[in-house]
Design a binder for these strands. Sequence first.
DNA 1: TGACAGAATTGGAACGTTCCAAATATTTAA
DNA 2: TTAAATATTTGGAACGTTCCAATTCTGTCA
Lengths: 355, 355
Amino acid sequence: MWRREEDVTKARVTVIDIAKAAGVSKSTVSLVLQGSSLVNEGTRAKVNAVMRELGYVYNRGAANLRQASAKSRIIGVVVNDLTNSFFAELAVGVDMVVQSAGFVQFLSNTSESIDRQREVVASMREHGISGLIVSPARATDAADFKPLVAAGIPVVVVVRNLPGAKVSSVVSDNQAGMMSAVKHLAELGHKRIAFLGGFPDTAVFDDRLAGYRSGIEAAGLDCQQELVISSAPSRAGGVEAIGKAIVLADKPSAAVCFNDAVAFGVCDGLRARRLEPGSDFAVVGFDDVIEAQAAVPALTTVSVDPQGIGRRGAQLLLKQINAGKAEAETVITAVRLVVRESCGARKSVKIETGL
Amino acid sequence: MWRREEDVTKARVTVIDIAKAAGVSKSTVSLVLQGSSLVNEGTRAKVNAVMRELGYVYNRGAANLRQASAKSRIIGVVVNDLTNSFFAELAVGVDMVVQSAGFVQFLSNTSESIDRQREVVASMREHGISGLIVSPARATDAADFKPLVAAGIPVVVVVRNLPGAKVSSVVSDNQAGMMSAVKHLAELGHKRIAFLGGFPDTAVFDDRLAGYRSGIEAAGLDCQQELVISSAPSRAGGVEAIGKAIVLADKPSAAVCFNDAVAFGVCDGLRARRLEPGSDFAVVGFDDVIEAQAAVPALTTVSVDPQGIGRRGAQLLLKQINAGKAEAETVITAVRLVVRESCGARKSVKIETGL
DNA sequence: TGACAGAATTGGAACGTTCCAAATATTTAA
DNA sequence: TTAAATATTTGGAACGTTCCAATTCTGTCA
């Protein structure tokens, strides 16, 4: 009964241990830690050497106790579905700029649950985040982030904006994107173009629908209510929506979809009715998820660069953190229509060999 | 020049404010915070009410100063490529169990850079993580996590094991997976089966190659060195590898690939030579990434359930955190061959309508 | 009524850092 | 050689919590 594991060095090494070993005061060590120019070069060198030797690890928790929350260098990131490559890319974009600014990222997944979201945000707050980037779960209350900003913690909303909330946001140009999709279909000769999928109670839906309407008008077509069919913004929702569209007395010959998932569902639904997407019915998506390119037929869609959104959002947040407190600001990132096969413009399969 | 924003309540509300307002001592408030059974029901209720009223937010940093690092309830997660849906799924799996255990996840991306990895791990340590889950960057030194475990911080390595490091790990059954892939191809009548892609200096490569060899032997074929062609584990690597395989004097008719990315590259390379994957040459991948199903031809591959690995890893880690300190333990998760089209077993395209 | 047990509460002293005002060492200028 | 200026260093006192030992309440039992 003789325990070998009974380690001699149980306590962790602190700034005081360093001070003692280097023959200076703890204040000096602290100064070195902060890279202050007040300390003599020789002293700095010796202190650093001792730190390395004793294996010192900085205790940020203790430091944060003394400093403002803005200096914790933690930024919280909450997304609604990390499984979706769109959001994974977004998180990577955030991580890139956050990491190179010497911050570290707290990432959580809400799975579109508003309760989960509340929990993780509360938890992040307890941990003293310097700022928050959030792609809000559906039906998030605009006032939900009020306490955060009241406490001086900058918040940046990405992807889905939160009308009414006084926070910064970075969203893609949903309106212009949808408009260009409609324009493209009209140029291909389509006269009846449907808008399929999405939940009508979201800001993104409103924007995309508005873009659809502008596009229809710009093409000199008339905008008919029956051609707008909402559904869940998922593959299943797409199947459902095309099912309703196809039984209309005056059938559409093309559709712009709320997002790529819906577009894939629409393709499924078409094929279930022996119609080939692309040749028999034109479909265009939105988002340009990673699968869009490899699908058959390859999906024509509006590409939004989620990683760019992540980067922009993080930059905006860091700016606000450094500025102490900045105004709410909105940035809209550009999108671009990428024409593949599902709209019927190109027939042949092009193999894109990965580089 | 009259600033309205000059808030009256600048200081944050602390446990002492609560104590004062509730007419008890800070110790009592602390007891309530910890859900101690020592405190009277009435007192607890009043304290809780006051907390809500004053908008108290717990300061975990301060608490951690007093308590062991094991109680910080932060667990660090580092992956090498979040863009890859495999790792995104893994992170989601971790998040699920970590979150429901009341922990919060620090997630970072190393982009396969060993320096980045060192940085983020150091940063996480400074923040006082209770444990670490890491999918190590290539060429990670087994001794790299030594200081962590010496400091009593449990580490679980996932996906890629680190032979020699005395840490727990959760990896998929690479050997059995590869073996079943080879067996399947052999049953389809293939006599010359190549092993394509992957870097030979990794543990995962060794495991998969070993599985390949066992499979070849089990099928009564002979194992020829020229049929093992390594390359970068990427799409480009796959193109390169099949390029070398196809010029062999005695050509293979099928290949198992190091992973799905390589398999896609192999398909690209075949087509560039007017060979159709599936009918002219059988290819099977490994991982079952999300694109495998939607590709043309749909990829036959070994499915590994990254989310499951994430969950298992998190469970293992939490167990060790709670136990104070547990032995290093290795768990190997099961894999399963999913037969699609690229191996030539099934010719027809099946539309899988999303549910 | 007093003594005692148990329940509930409480005042410090940590924890590891930063910050401030003040002290000391070193140069420079006269 | 000395005063002034500059460069460097330094003790406390925070920060917001937890923990310990000690205290004050309740009843309860003799």
